[in-house]
Design a protein around this nucleic acid. Structure first.
Length: 481
RNA sequence: GGGCGCAUAGCUCAGCGGUAGAGCAGCUGACUUUUAAUCAGCGGGUCGAAGGUUCGAUUCCUUCUGCGCUCACCA
């Protein structure tokens, strides 16, 4: 039916898909500029706008046009338009993209309107839009056909635009501190930098197995060793072949930041500074409501050691226990710890079970056990621990940072420990990366490193309850019927 | 991966052991100051897929597929 209309238009000499259109104004700007225009008042101000037809009333006399900034009504009156134009308008459908030349007025009913003297078809839409009142609510369609979701749902447009602004402001902040943005490989022959399962792929010409990176960490540190810059960051995608949930997508965006001559407490400051800058810049506030909870990013954030937090909740001093005692205490607390788990894994399990979800307000959880932190430097006061922290907000891990391990001999030993865990069945343990250790052998300056989960940050700042709402095209199974 | 739930018109949804309904969208007409426009009329469906039970299945059962919620997993 719409194709028939299109043919009719072609016969009239109207190209349904023209090449170019010069517009002069956006809907929102006009709404703001003429906010004071009185009801019923006419102007001689000529404007040219373009957008998609979202409503079509009185046989096309009133058309609601939606552009990227908002909506504005178009008035097509027969006194101002010739036969040909009226015929063209009668062949418009909801969803068509049109350009309008006309004069600004406010109707007696109060609606800012463009009194059209010429209307051009800019793109014929061949498919009907979802229902105008209820809109598009089917989540599957919204994720699979995001273009439709964007056409129909203002909130989707706002969230994804805010995503862009958030990311731009992070870059802006770091550039202002002389950080150098770099790009390191997405395809790794050895995966590393995080305890996670990788996607694997194959390169034909080299006939080799490659992995999609789970983290850029080991390459960024090589750049620090080389002295490309004392301050580097990479803001881009990582890939983990793991479960999907409201806060996990197989491909996700992280930022990793490395600063030579800094340590983990500098990274705590940096974490707070980046997030408060972004919040102020994009939203003009540090106070947010997420899922009914008030969250304030106002600094300084609480800084508590993992063992202290566990003690607060359980009254157990895990720091004073050996492996076996820790195992018994964890069992007493009703925590399911795998047999043979080391002290660090037990402490981590207790923390995950008893503490994590309680950390609603931004909190830096410091001093993670050594065994679960193979890339982090030993704590200067306690060799069981590392100078590592994770920042928790709303019970989620938002950031992870350490004083980087720069001692090559210690690092090699950590990799060897990881490999023996791997041999014992831990598929997420790090494989040895000889070249990385070699780079450390040339000498890496003391360095602080920080990683922030960008998608989760965006969720918190935009109030999105699922990661799929902050990723334009989230991972879905292909539709097969 | 486990549990629960959902899948009917382009969209939002009813419905039911006797092969289907509304509103919006669409088409025809009326109407030139409407804004969820209105009024009159019309068309529109492999009821997610495949099996089974039944005289008969969109409906009941099984399996599959997709999605959602949730638990597990996941720094």
């Amino acid at each position: 039916m719409r194709i028939k209309k299109m043919e009719e238009l072609r016969e009239m000499g109207v190209n349904p898909y023209p090449y170019k259109f010069e517009k002069t104004h956006d809907a929102l700007l006009l709404q703001e500029k003429y906010a004071e225009l009185a009801m019923g008042e006419e102007t001689n101000d000529k404007v040219i706008v373009a957008g998609r037809i979202m409503a079509y009333r009185n046989s096309g006399m009133f058309i609601d046009l939606q552009d990227v900034t908002g909506r504005i009504q178009v008035f097509c009156h027969k006194n101002r338009l010739d036969e040909q134009q009226l015929k063209v308008i009668s062949l418009f459908d909801l969803g068509d993209i049109i350009g309008v030349y006309g004069y600004i007025r406010r109707t007696p009913r109060g609606e800012l309107t463009i009194n059209a003297e010429k209307v051009d078809l800019l793109s014929k839409s061949l498919l009907p839009l979802p229902e105008k009142y209820h809109g598009l609510t089917d989540k599957e369609v919204r994720y699979r056909q995001r273009y439709l979701d964007l056409i129909m749902n203002e909130s989707t447009r706002v969230t994804l635009r805010n995503r862009s602004k958030i990311i731009a402001s992070i870059r802006q902040y770091l550039n202002g501190l002389d950080f150098l943005e770099v790009e390191t490989p997405m395809l790794h022959s050895i995966f590393g930098g995080a305890a996670a399962l990788p996607f694997s792929t194959h390169h034909n010409t080299l006939n080799m197995k490659l992995y999609l990176r789970v983290a850029p960490e080991l390459y960024l540190k090589r750049l620090i060793v080389g002295g490309l810059s004392e301050k580097v960051f990479e803001l881009n995608r990582c890939f983990r072949n793991e479960g999907i949930s409201f806060k996990h997508n197989p491909e996700f965006t992280s930022i990793e930041i490395y600063q030579a001559y800094a340590d983990f407490s500098d990274m705590m400051d940096l974490t707070e500074n980046i997030i408060s800058y972004v919040a102020e810049t994009v939203f003009g506030t540090l106070d947010f409501e997420y899922d009914g909870k008030q969250i304030s990013f106002k600094g300084p954030w609480a800084r508590r050691s993992m063992l202290d937090l566990i003690h607060d909740v359980t009254n157990v001093h895990f720091g004073e226990l050996d492996n076996e005692q820790a195992y018994q205490e964890a069992k007493k607390l009703g925590i399911d710890v795998p047999k043979g788990a080391n002290w660090g894994k037990i402490v981590e399990a207790v923390f995950g079970e008893k503490v994590e979800t309680k950390l609603i307000q931004p909190t830096h959880v410091t001093h993670f056990p050594r065994e679960i932190s193979p890339l982090a430097r030993e704590d200067r006061d306690n060799p069981r621990l590392t100078e590592r922290f994770e920042s928790f907000v709303n019970g989620w891990e938002l950031a992870n940072a350490f004083s980087e391990l720069i001692d090559p001999i210690d690092q090699r030993g950590r990799f060897e420990q990881q490999m023996s865990e791997r041999g014992a069945g831990d598929v997420e343990a790090h494989p040895m990366d000889e070249d990385f250790v070699t780079s450390l052998e040339y000498g890496m300056p003391p360095t602080g490193g920080l990683g922030i989960g960008i998608d989760r940050l965006i969720m918190l700042l935009t109030g999105s309850l699922t990661i799929r709402d902050v990723i334009a095209f989230p991972t879905l199974r292909p539709k097969t019927d």
